[in-house]
Design a protein around this nucleic acid. Sequence first.
DNA 1: GTGAACATGTAACAAGTTACATGATTGA
DNA 2: TCAATCATGTAACTTGTTACATGTTCAC
Lengths: 189, 189
Amino acid sequence: MNARTLCLGILSFGDATGYEIKKMVEDGMFNHFIEASYGSIYPALTRMTEDGLLTCREEIQTGRPDKKVYAITLAGRTELESTLSEHPRDDKFKSEFLFIMLLSKNLPRTHVAQIYLKRLEDVRAEYDMIRKMAGECDEAGTRFVTGYGLAIFEAKIKYLEQNAGFAGLDASAVMESVAPQTNGRDAAE
Amino acid sequence: MNARTLCLGILSFGDATGYEIKKMVEDGMFNHFIEASYGSIYPALTRMTEDGLLTCREEIQTGRPDKKVYAITLAGRTELESTLSEHPRDDKFKSEFLFIMLLSKNLPRTHVAQIYLKRLEDVRAEYDMIRKMAGECDEAGTRFVTGYGLAIFEAKIKYLEQNAGFAGLDASAVMESVAPQTNGRDAAE
DNA sequence: GTGAACATGTAACAAGTTACATGATTGA
DNA sequence: TCAATCATGTAACTTGTTACATGTTCAC
């Protein structure tokens, strides 16, 4: 999905600046299945405003650049719906981690174990983030996609925990250190 | 991961042609977490041979272009190990399907249901493919990565089956049609 | 005889990333 | 004082995709 459609879709939920759109795909609700950089967002926004798919109102600020708040137009919604009516392409999944595991027999054991452990931590962290987002969902679409993310990340964590032996780690090494005050994943469900 | 490392990694398992490498990432063991096209594989192979990371022997064939069988050199293995010693980047996951589901409230219901059902079928098909591959794994690395794929795809299928209501589908609509003679996923485990 | 599989390769094109440029404010 | 957050934007670069070019054999 290109940057245009992405911005259009996010703006269909409500007005936003380029900066805010970036935040949403970076640490927001959508981070687990979308990505985009400023270098693709800003040009897309400018271009679509010229094309009449968006309107832009400038909010003057002191001490920092003026905010450009974008809003989707009727033409924009039409365009979005037309794009969305095409069949979605297959999900794209690329994993350097799996590639390394695939070739791990030729790599130093400690290195593999280290990468494995870090990956497990990263996956847990991302899981917790999605979980936090899921708590704030008030709408069917967002609930569905965060639920999907949660389901996949749970499966990843479980698999990594149960197959730690592959990386030469034992069960105790992959146990999650339980945070003392906040209740993590385990207690919350 | 770039096309160079990809080819190097696959060739570390054994000699292969560009065509064969493409097949492996297209319908082989690696298809669920890697992708590459001829346009990136062939130039990478040529370039790396020039760089001394690969050797190439030509097998003359009649009626079709000569086969170029590539083999990794010692320098190639060194290069590969050095690349692999860097920490892997985060997995990349992009889903147009989820994006459509996110925005589905503004889309025709029948269209959403149709896409949902097709996605479920596609995911099941890909699951079955990985499963078939998994049966042929004779080595720890390949077993690990196919197992990982299986775990994720099982989670996807389960989630899609249990949340079919979101797309306005009822339970009977998402039941897998049981093939009469071959035993599918359900019976085999 | 029609399409898929086998087999390699290039060139034009698309798309997005990275790094740079700018600069105030705020919290540790 | 140092890093992060807020805020926008561009240009060079990397990377890979798509489509084209070529041609045989085999199965349906």
